[in-house]
Deep mutational scan, measured.
Amino acid sequence: PDLGLTQLFADPNLIENLKKNPKTSEMMKDPQLVAKLIGYKQNPQAIGQDLFTDPRLMTIMATLMGVDL
């Protein structure tokens, strides 16, 4: 199971919303991170391994779920 990750990354406004959010806007200036996020739309399971190697993803996930870290 993808634990709902498919829906989190399926939002067509995902990148724009993250660019507008004060907690994630600075991160979204990294083209490699943006490319990763776009890739998760097609393969949400890929985030599982990346969560352990890129701490920014935890902040992004929390933001998408509405959790304040």
Rank of each mutant, 00 (worst) to 15 (best):
P1C: 11
P1I: 11
P1R: 02
P1E: 11
P1F: 02
D2P: 14
D2T: 14
L3G: 15
L3Q: 13
L3A: 14
G4F: 15
G4H: 12
G4N: 15
G4K: 15
G4T: 15
G4L: 15
G4I: 15
G4W: 15
L5H: 07
L5N: 06
T6P: 10
T6W: 11
T6V: 14
Q7P: 06
L8T: 04
L8R: 05
L8K: 05
F9K: 01
F9I: 05
F9G: 02
F9H: 02
A10M: 14
A10F: 08
A10W: 09
D11Q: 08
D11S: 05
D11L: 03
D11E: 08
P12W: 04
P12M: 06
P12Y: 03
N13F: 12
N13V: 03
I15E: 02
I15T: 02
I15W: 05
I15L: 09
I15Q: 01
E16I: 07
E16W: 05
E16A: 10
E16D: 10
N17E: 09
L18H: 00
L18P: 00
L18I: 03
L18F: 02
K19E: 08
K19R: 13
K19V: 08
K19D: 02
K20E: 07
N21T: 03
N21S: 06
N21Q: 04
P22G: 04
P22W: 05
K23S: 09
K23Y: 08
S25F: 06
S25Q: 10
S25T: 09
E26C: 07
E26Y: 07
E26Q: 09
E26I: 06
M27E: 02
M28N: 00
M28Q: 00
K29A: 07
K29E: 09
K29D: 09
K29M: 08
D30W: 01
D30M: 01
D30F: 02
P31S: 08
P31G: 06
P31N: 08
Q32T: 12
Q32R: 10
L33E: 00
V34E: 06
V34R: 04
V34K: 02
V34Q: 05
A35R: 09
K36H: 04
K36T: 08
K36Y: 05
K36Q: 10
K36M: 12
K36I: 12
L37R: 00
L37F: 03
L37G: 00
I38M: 15
I38L: 15
I38A: 10
G39I: 11
G39M: 14
G39W: 15
G39E: 14
G39H: 14
Y40A: 04
Y40D: 01
K41S: 15
K41Y: 09
K41E: 05
K41W: 11
Q42R: 08
Q42W: 06
Q42K: 13
Q42E: 14
Q42D: 15
Q42I: 10
N43G: 05
N43K: 05
P44C: 05
P44V: 08
P44K: 03
P44T: 06
Q45K: 10
Q45A: 13
Q45V: 09
A46K: 12
A46N: 12
I47T: 04
I47A: 09
I47V: 12
I47N: 05
I47L: 15
I47E: 03
G48N: 14
G48P: 11
Q49C: 10
Q49V: 14
D50Q: 05
D50G: 06
D50P: 02
L51S: 07
L51I: 13
L51D: 04
F52P: 08
F52T: 08
F52N: 08
F52V: 12
T53Y: 08
T53L: 11
T53N: 12
T53S: 14
T53H: 10
D54T: 01
D54N: 02
D54I: 01
D54A: 01
D54W: 02
D54S: 02
P55T: 10
P55N: 08
P55E: 08
P55D: 06
P55H: 12
P55C: 07
R56A: 06
L57C: 03
L57R: 00
M58C: 09
M58A: 08
M58W: 15
M58K: 09
T59W: 13
T59P: 02
T59Q: 10
I60F: 03
I60N: 00
I60K: 00
I60L: 06
M61W: 15
A62R: 08
A62D: 07
A62V: 11
A62H: 08
T63Y: 15
T63C: 07
L64F: 05
L64T: 02
L64A: 04
M65I: 09
M65K: 09
M65P: 03
M65N: 05
M65C: 07
G66C: 08
G66Q: 09
G66P: 06
G66I: 07
G66E: 12
V67F: 14
V67Y: 13
V67T: 12
V67H: 14
V67A: 14
D68Y: 01
D68I: 02
D68K: 02
D68N: 05
L69I: 15
L69K: 10
